[in-house]
């Protein structure tokens, strides 16, 4: 089991190659798996995974474990790069929008959970979803929120997709609000 926070810190501190290799071995195949689950080709998924880990190397000094877990940080970098690469020909600027939102508006620490606590609770709440709900959330996040597509993939009626997704999202929110 690796300690991603320590590895990222080592990269930030001294450009530690071994730490980078360990982080790559853990996260690159997962980013690739995530992209492919979302319908990306193996080539595109590989490219996004490579670029994501290079961005982790470059931005290691900006990682703040109080704001989010390493997995969440890396997942959002992968999301931005997926958008950049998939919409390259249209000169999409959406990833800049996400970056601006991320740097803007520091949260008030007393009013909210720390990033690491929030991540742990979201993770816990995710494990409490029924397998059906989990699958709908996963498909929506990775393949898009077109209910028609999700309904088709899962071979369930459109109304069931809508209600399942709504229920799953409200369960997640409920679990977090209880703890705020």
């Amino acid at each position: 089991m690796i300690d991603p926070n320590a590895l990222i810190a080592a990269i930030a501190r001294s450009g530690d190659r071994e730490a980078f290799a360990a982080l790559f071995d853990h996260f690159a195949p997962r980013v690739k798996g995530l992209l492919m689950r979302g319908g990306a080709s193996a080539e595109l998924a590989e490219e996004v995974a490579q670029e994501t880990l290079l961005a982790v190397w470059r931005k290691a000094g900006l990682f703040d474990p109080a704001k989010a877990s390493a997995s969440t940080w890396i997942a959002t970098i992968a999301r931005n790069l997926r958008i950049d690469i998939a919409r390259r020909e249209t000169r999409s600027r959406l990833s800049q929008v996400y970056e601006i939102l991320d740097e803007e508006a520091p949260e008030q620490p007393d009013a909210t959970l720390s990033g690491a606590e929030r991540d742990a609770r979201v993770r816990d709440a995710m494990t409490r979803l029924s397998p059906d709900q989990y699958r709908v959330v996963e498909l929506a996040f990775l393949e898009g929120f077109s209910h028609q597509d999700v309904a088709h993939r899962l071979a369930i009626p459109l109304g069931t997709v809508k209600s399942r997704l709504r229920l799953a999202l409200s369960h997640l929110r409920g679990r977090l609000e209880d703890l705020r």
Partner: peptide, 19 residues
């Protein structure tokens, strides 16, 4: 931020694909 954390959780749970 919570919805970003959902993506982190999905990343942790996904089946890795060899590079």
């Amino acid at each position: 931020r919570e919805l970003d954390a959902v993506q982190g959780a999905l990343l942790d749970a996904i089946e890795p694909v060899a590079m």
